[in-house]
Design a protein around this nucleic acid. Sequence first.
RNA 1: GCGGAUGGCCGGAUAAUCGCCGCCUUGGGGUAAACCCUUGGGGGAGGAAAGUCCGGACUCCCUUGAGCAACGGUGCCGGGUAACGCCCGGCGGGGGUAACCCCAGGGAUAGCGCCACAGAGAACAGACUGCCCUCUCACACGGGGGUUAUGGUGAAACGGUGGGGUAAGAGCCCACCGCGGGACUGGCAACAGAACCGGCACGGCAAGCCCCACCGGGAGCAAUGCCAAAUAGGGGUUUCGCGCGGGAUCGGCGGUAACGCGGAUCACUCGCAGGGUCGCUCAAGCCCGAGAAACCCGGGUUGGCAGCUUGAGCCUGUUGGCAACAGCAGGCCUAGAGGAAUGGUUAUCGAGGGGGCGCAAGCCUCUGAACAGAAUCCGGCUUACAGGCCGUCCGCGUCA
RNA 2: GCGGGUAUGGUGAAAUGGUAUCACACGAGCUUCCCAAGCUCUUGGCGCGGGUUCGAUUCCCGCUACCCGCU
Length: 149
Amino acid sequence: MTPPDAPEDKAHADAEGSQSAVLSCADEKMTIETLAKRADFLRAARARRQGTGSFLLQGRKRAETEDATGIRVGYTCSKKVGNAVARNHAKRRLREAARLVIPDLGKDGWDYVLIGKKTDTSGRPFDLLLKDLRYALRKVHGENRGPRA
RNA sequence: GCGGAUGGCCGGAUAAUCGCCGCCUUGGGGUAAACCCUUGGGGGAGGAAAGUCCGGACUCCCUUGAGCAACGGUGCCGGGUAACGCCCGGCGGGGGUAACCCCAGGGAUAGCGCCACAGAGAACAGACUGCCCUCUCACACGGGGGUUAUGGUGAAACGGUGGGGUAAGAGCCCACCGCGGGACUGGCAACAGAACCGGCACGGCAAGCCCCACCGGGAGCAAUGCCAAAUAGGGGUUUCGCGCGGGAUCGGCGGUAACGCGGAUCACUCGCAGGGUCGCUCAAGCCCGAGAAACCCGGGUUGGCAGCUUGAGCCUGUUGGCAACAGCAGGCCUAGAGGAAUGGUUAUCGAGGGGGCGCAAGCCUCUGAACAGAAUCCGGCUUACAGGCCGUCCGCGUCA
RNA sequence: GCGGGUAUGGUGAAAUGGUAUCACACGAGCUUCCCAAGCUCUUGGCGCGGGUUCGAUUCCCGCUACCCGCU
């Protein structure tokens, strides 16, 4: 999905820049809760989705009847990803990526679900993983805004 | 040096930084607890954490003992252990030149069952085929008798080979081998050796049923207990039972009274009977006592705390023992979450692998660590596993 | 975490200590102007590794994969 001729150091610089941005605005960071209920996962699966080279992102804005503030993120790695070591490793990388990116680009009142893939989630370089997450968040937000406008 | 056998150990390292999960802690908020914010410290996956195949601890099924039955398991001997189907040391059998490895390895005269195909015959001893003698005219394919060999078949065939012997033969006789019994000797034992006896009788399969000996009650931390909230304060079926007596309570009669006689009741209490309590029986204990037990239906709950990590624990030394292991002394505390914490990035080192140069030593470059993640806890087994380290032993070759 | 079950051609099934069977499917041929149906023939298998046995799909042990139940 990422162009193969994308310069490596450019993506690297991009990742570092965002990292410092996160550090600078850490005080206004949104509180991130973790999804646990099966029903929340099912609702998110019916909403927007965007695949990338390393994972699949699902996102939705919660209805007014639910608790409207705060960002909630869930992680899914099924048995298709591999054994327990592979599943836990994929979840850890997704958690780390979400910790670095979601407070900046996530929107208040949204639920996100990150779904790991078999070999790409563990094997992809981490800066590309961050890039994938930013791209996917833009797509999920943008496609949601499009039909509404 | 090459090839092999076997035992034990390790399972990438260091640092920086941003994070994650418990514990302790500073300050603040809070009446307090819970909790929230904050400061600092310290800890944080395995040899298999796995498979869930065995054995336990622990908890519940109300508890226990004896016997019987059923079911399941184990199965040479001795030892170790809390226990085991595990471990150690022996014995027997099999494989290998050897080091060494493998074996559920009790009983086949307690009984039943099975042994396909082939073969005369498949379990006990005879029929059949043959050989020999004899009868009748006949050296007949017929009658009578003797005999146990079979080109062979098969996983397995009235012990094998050789010699003698005979009408033909045969343990009929002899030698050797095998087989059965076995005084006695060694050993705790399994077992080994064996004088002597027997002329041979007794096939295999018990991971077929079974017999014998020994062991085993069931379920499992999603066990279980407590707190809070909510709902219900139930229904059905079956089985057993709905008695007696004393106290008690309430009347009656007699008596001045203590008390005596007789009656009623079952809220309370005691005893007996009864009922319940392991598959059955017996016993003890316990519970119920007007209801009890079993099963089913219906209703509520997915919150918190405990169990939860100090334990048949680990390390070092020493003593006993061939060893497994045990004793003693000293030291240590080493994850405890509750759907699950160890990750990201960077640097240096780095086992190993690929490519290039070089006679070689070596140099340059690329890659950059197997199997795999605690979920109540231990002892084992089994399975997965890149690579490395330390021993011990065997065979062959070479040198001295 | 705990407890249980099943694996037989491509698919669905059966059987038993001795040669593994049936249906559909696949392939070839016949039939038809062509297709379907029908008829004939062929191919192909006991999840894996050990053990017991003369002989294992069956009996025993260990793995692998899949499925189910329990708060």
